[in-house]
Write a protein that binds this DNA or RNA. Sequence first.
DNA 1: GCTGATTTGTCGTATATCCAACACATCGAT
DNA 2: ATCGATGTGTTGGATATACGACAAATCAGC
Lengths: 192, 192
Amino acid sequence: MTQTKTDPRILRTRKLIMDSFIELSGKKDFKDITVKDITNAAMINRATFYYHFEDIYDLLEKVLLEVLLINLDYHDYENSKLDEETFINLFKAITKFQQSLSYRCHRSYEETIARIIREQLEVIFYKMLVKEHPTIEENVLKGTAVMLSWGLYGASVEWRRTSKKMTTPEEYIKSVLPFIKNGIGFVSGNGK
Amino acid sequence: MTQTKTDPRILRTRKLIMDSFIELSGKKDFKDITVKDITNAAMINRATFYYHFEDIYDLLEKVLLEVLLINLDYHDYENSKLDEETFINLFKAITKFQQSLSYRCHRSYEETIARIIREQLEVIFYKMLVKEHPTIEENVLKGTAVMLSWGLYGASVEWRRTSKKMTTPEEYIKSVLPFIKNGIGFVSGNGK
DNA sequence: GCTGATTTGTCGTATATCCAACACATCGAT
DNA sequence: ATCGATGTGTTGGATATACGACAAATCAGC
């Protein structure tokens, strides 16, 4: 499928900025990183930074989303059904993403990370639901996607908080699947 | 010492072009490399290429000079005298540079390489001569620099042609030093 | 709390780079 | 020799990026 072409300068400059930010994140906590640090490391002008990003928080979100998309891209689930395997894979992707972030800087923007994960999960669930249940009302599908994304994310929080050291992500998610499936069972017309 | 600042875009773009050219030179002979190849590999526009370089031959020369300058920079000889050690070091630098070029693409622009080596040697010799003999006529110093640069380069050609496999550059250059020193002996006022 | 240093965010202007178009040159297959 | 494909070199206009200046906000030391 054809894609609108982006000016190569934009691609290069954004990459410079994002790569510099990621590298700095390995050295300092997010709250100690300045726009000046980033523009110096990237060797670009401050005005150029602001041409591309609203501020450093905008950059953070976009970097996190880009890194997340490596693990959690709808295209990887386009041909999947909302079944046990899919939930296991999504859960593993979330936990992998969380683990891939540098421990030191993670804590400063955990809320942003959480929101980004949930939003991406919501997008994926919604698209899968639309595909499997095209005749169901959009509001219902939206609500289901919200519930599923918060639920799965919540499971990852609990896993990290209580069970990380003794169970694998795969083992953990299986224990909460029956509840999740009941929700799915409703829209599939399956009985109690 | 302060240096006029170059626009970072210029630095980046030239580096993209030169790096792409060097990488392509490792894969194809020079005569098979096109401007289109380079601009594709560098992901820059053809007009931008022509903004920086007259043509592909101009690029070749500038790349070769830049690589040569890593081995043969006047700044490394600023505090040297025109003595045996200096000649040995210069000769080793020439032969090292020649060996660092990829064998396959070397043959296509050997003349350009030769000219660049001689020109750089001439610059270095001339500056050293001016420093050691400030009162001698410029024409004489120029001529001496020309003689020395052609001579040293010629020695490297002969070494590669006849003696490369059995002598080191250092051993070889020592055998031609007495002749070279006689020339130097003239401007130093030393006897026969 | 004060103060100097540093960073942020923005603006007008200049420059580097991009794009598409064009005419011409070169290349490779026939 | 011919012809279609490909590459070269150039141009005008558009866009992205740089620079320096400025006012305001934030930070760190006292």
